[in-house]
């Protein structure tokens, strides 16, 4: 999973059915000292994160299908690959 800062969100009324009812956040990966590393990307919010939050983002389709309780096998038609799965309170590095 990646530590990310939520930069904002994207509004799209015309979208694939799996995205209905979900907020689509713009997230910026950061390192353990919250320095920006790499490019920003999009992730579906599952934990009511807001702009400015430090969050945990998972980027793997199979995990997403499990989290969103997709039916098994060929009708698991969820084209989502990144999801926000946690809001981070603290990061400590000894």
């Amino acid at each position: 999973m990646k530590l990310c800062r939520v930069l904002g969100n994207v509004v799209a009324t015309v979208k694939h059915a799996s995205y209905h009812g979900h907020k689509l956040m713009i997230v910026q990966p950061v390192d353990e000292a919250q320095r920006e590393v790499g490019a920003s990307f999009l992730a579906v919010d599952l934990v009511q994160a807001g702009a400015g939050d430090l969050v945990l983002v998972m980027q793997e389709g199979n995990g997403v299908r499990q989290v969103l309780k997709a039916p098994e096998g060929k009708d698991a038609k969820i084209p989502i690959r990144s999801v926000v799965i946690g809001i981070v309170d603290a990061v400590s590095t000894s």
Binding site: L7, G8, N9, V10, V11, A12, T13, V14, K15, H16, S18, Y19, L24, I26, A51, G52, P79
Partner: peptide, 12 residues
């Protein structure tokens, strides 16, 4: 795959 047509982008 294109999965959405964007209306607005909000960036803090």
């Amino acid at each position: 795959a294109i999965v959405g047509i964007v209306d607005q982008v909000h960036v803090e």
